[in-house]
Nucleic acid binder design. Structure first.
Lengths: 213, 213, 213, 213
DNA sequence: GATGAATGAGCATTCATTCAT
DNA sequence: GATGAATGAATGCTCATTCAT
């Protein structure tokens, strides 16, 4: 589906691999600076110091570079963050609400730190995920991984968990987290990040953790 | 910035108003069917049964029609929903957690009902709000109204409310609600809407309402 | 089938019709001078003193102009020649072989005269009829008309006609005539046209007409 | 004109000869499948399992491979058919019209058999002979051989031959035969091959042979 | 006011050919 | 000899916008 003419050359020599990387870097810079829609293949090639033809040797079109970039960013962010998440929790066997809240705080701060990909590019990716079926699928696939992890975590700690429908809860939590991260990053409302973060942690904990513990 | 050449004619005769309306309707259909970026002025004019020139009499460019459409949709949705919200709450003086939960359920269902604007167009709007400063501002302005209302509501019912930073809470709640509505609408994860809705209500209530009441 | 996006504008105003005609004329000149494959839309537009966009308003691509040109040439040549053919024969009730031969001579000369469309363009058309399914179909359709006429003529004069399988004979005659006309026009062998014409007439008559008459 | 840069390497080692042959075979397949104009050097090299550079070691450009292919096909067809023709006639000393007709039938069937080169490629060659001066010359040279043979044959059997201008007659016959072979092969009119073949034989004989014999 | 023809800069994409390795 | 990466001019086509009628 949508794999286009599959004409894209796969570089075998070092020089080819370098060119491909140069193109990806240049595209990343330009998508960030001018946005995906306002960037064109010619500019990318120029910025990458490569001929137009070279661009089209490695990518069938603009969207393919974008996909490649997204793959890398998603791969980076989600996996890094998630491995972190798993690790943190298993390390700090959380038994009480207060402990939980502390962990939530550390985690969120940590994630926010990782999540420092440049704003504009992130906006472009989110927008594209809304506008383009293929990009949407890439996002969905990545989300699936997180949801699965969240479910397995809730299952492992079920006696400390308030909710019962783990899957639905995982979806709600994930989407909530995502939105909040963007909110903090893009900050469209004028309320300071710290205050927001506190409310977010509170909301997660009051929803997720049994309070009596 | 963005004030454009202000050449757009403001129709005063019935015929002119009709033409303008036809253009807006046509644009709405096309933005929905093909997306904003893939729709062009010529098509809109054609679908509206109007000459290309006429299109440019009433709108300086494609984005202006889009803005107009957004204005109407935001006006419709947000205001309708919000007036409803205010009305509902003042009518049903909520004193207990259970009562609150019931109201939350009714409200969310109500909002979801109002929120049935065609998916695709909504996606386009959200995407544009990420990509375009002007559209982003329109969205932010609309959100401001909701946040203000939420704050004033919390203030009015503060004894039943768990949280203390009303403004931050309002932001978190609004963004959460928005994201959840989209999640239910676009349903990218495969979990059924009903299960999601239940978790959402739970999350809002456990966060917002004092539980002992 | 192959009708492409059907986006081509049909001009309604005099100016539009003029532009379309200018494009067709320019294309004809260029196809003749440089051949179809070596001519491009930009050049056609330039020669027609029209913007590139105007070219694409009236034709979806180069092939469409070519089709239009072919339509006109085929329409002109075939119909003119054929009406002539019918008329000539009905006027000169041919009873003897000698009479037949005289008529054949007059006719062939006549046809050759009509057939003076510029060589190069004709070559291009023939070549395209070999290379392109759509153009091939256009040619076939035009040929069908001639074959039908030839059959009906043979039927009308059957007592002077040697052959019995009228349809096959018509095909053979048509193709023979076509090829000979091109041969005379393109003259690839170095034998003078007059000598060829004589042999052609002889071949047609000895094949077609009963000799005893 | 057309001598090109003459840089093409002439392979002397087995490996080189193999590469050259692989390229020719690949080109033949692609010209057949996609046509000459839509095939490009890169594809040919890829299909031949050879680097792009290797292609340009053996051929200066696409047309050179095409010329090579044409040379082989013409060499094959014309020579085979003609040697056959000469042999057949000298074997079967034809004295009467009926004998002549029989031979014509056998010959035509024979030729049609030899003439089974793949349609599409033949079309491409014919089209190119119309479009390209060099290819046209190649065709003309090959035809010259046939015409010479036909003339010498007519001369040898002049007492059985109706016509007097041997050269013109040879041209007419050759062109007629060519066209008819294509007609039978490409069959654009829907009349069955057998019926056409019969008419063709009849036309040749009634034109060529003295009937009283 | 309305029409729709015309504009032309702009963009995506291709491909014959070269050349460093 | 062979490789395949790189080149960049060339081309097809689009579309926002203007303007004569």
């Amino acid at each position: 589906m949508g794999v286009s003419k599959n004409k894209a050359r796969v570089p075998k020599q070092t020089r080819g691999i370098e060119s491909r990387e140069k193109i990806i870097s240049a595209a990343m810079v330009l998508f960030t600076e001018k946005g995906y829609h306002k960037t064109n293949a010619l500019e990318i090639a120029a910025k990458a110091d490569v001929a137009t033809g070279t661009f089209y040797s490695y990518f069938n079109n603009k969207k393919e570079v974008f996909s490649e970039i997204i793959k890398r960013i998603f791969g980076n962010i989600f996996e890094k963050v998630l491995l972190n998440l798993e690790f943190k929790i298993f390390k700090n066997r959380t038994d009480t609400y207060k402990e939980g809240k502390k962990i939530a705080h550390v985690l969120l701060s940590q994630i926010l730190l990782e999540y420092k990909v440049n704003h504009q590019l992130l906006k472009e990716i989110l927008a594209m995920a809304l506008l383009d079926k293929e990009i949407e699928k890439m996002r969905r696939d990545e989300e699936k991984k997180v949801i699965d992890l969240l479910v397995s975590l809730m299952r492992a700690y079920k006696k400390y968990v308030r909710v019962s429908d783990f899957e639905a809860a995982a979806v709600v939590l994930l989407k909530f987290m995502e939105e909040m991260l963007h909110q903090i990053k893009f900050n469209t409302t004028g309320v300071e990040a710290k205050r927001l973060q506190k409310q977010i942690e509170d909301m997660i904990c009051s929803y997720l953790l049994v309070s009596g513990s």
